[in-house]
């Protein structure tokens, strides 16, 4: 059913630290790898992989932005983007078949690929570009928050997090319950003033982004400067004579 469930108490999601992300794309690759072997759905397609115009389906992509500040040099920010598991998910309500749904128990937004007709309307409705039509299977693909990992009791406990979180070498991705004010991710968001993307779209995303921390500024005075004054003044001996003589010519 594509009607949205009442807001769940549990809101599983990601917190992405834009201060820490180094833009290595490991999360992109591990996401693709995990979701291409998952029994949840068809593998993520690669088209023309060795040809002139390769392209593929990804559930997570890393953009790199340059932010020009009023003072100081511009800042480069690597920006991973995947499904934000919105509370008011427009992709769910537009679905004509009921393939798109939001789980009442933890708020994860999923696609039932077996009944997806591949109309693409949900991808149009998503302002974030979080959904991609699979080039081979012709059904809609999206981040599952690795629902087949996080509840998977056959995996060791530390592995029960989304693949992107597990693989991030910088620790820039955090997974947890954003509906619980005392959870580690909620505290992180509170401490670092985490924000939602495109709040004006009214989608109420669950995922949060942590802003880059202010950069260190160089001190205005320079302790070494006094030692770097020109030292030729008052030179004596041969060099002094040379200096004076050359100055007269």
């Amino acid at each position: 059913m594509t009607a949205l469930p009442p807001p769940s108490a549990k809101k599983l999601g990601l917190v992405i630290d834009l201060d820490t992300c180094v833009g290595c794309h490991a999360c992109v690759v591990s996401c693709k790898e995990w979701n291409s072997q998952s029994p949840l759905g068809a593998p993520l397609a690669d088209l023309d992989a060795y040809g002139a115009a390769p392209e593929g389906t990804f559930l997570n992509r890393v953009h790199s932005f340059e932010v020009t500040r009023e003072a100081g040099p511009p800042v480069v920010v690597h920006f991973p983007k995947s499904c934000l598991h919105c509370e008011d998910a427009p992709c769910v309500t537009v679905c004509p078949t009921g393939a798109s749904y939001k789980r009442a128990e933890d708020g994860i937004v999923l696609v039932n690929e077996d009944i997806c007709i591949g109309c693409g309307l949900c991808a149009w409705a998503c302002p974030y570009g979080a959904r991609e039509m699979d080039g081979a299977e012709r059904v809609m693909k999206k981040c599952t928050l690795c629902v087949d990992r996080i509840y998977n009791e056959t995996l060791p406990e530390p592995d029960r997090v989304p693949a992107c979180v597990k693989s991030c070498p910088a620790g820039a991705r955090h997974f947890g319950d954003l509906g619980d004010e005392d959870s580690a991710v909620s505290r992180l968001v509170a401490e670092r003033e985490g924000f939602a993307l495109m709040p004006d779209q009214g989608t109420k995303p669950v995922n949060r982004y942590l802003p880059p921390r202010p950069r260190d500024a160089l001190p205005e005075f320079d302790v070494l400067a006094p030692y770097l004054e020109p030292v030729t003044e008052g030179a004596g001996g041969f060099l002094g004579w040379l200096d004076r003589t050359l100055g007269k010519i």
């Binding site: 932010v67 802003p211 880059p212």
Partner: peptide, 12 residues
């Protein structure tokens, strides 16, 4: 991007 608090944003 939510980066407006820092400055003007451009895709790099």
């Amino acid at each position: 991007t939510g980066l407006g608090r820092i400055g003007k944003v451009r895709l790099l």
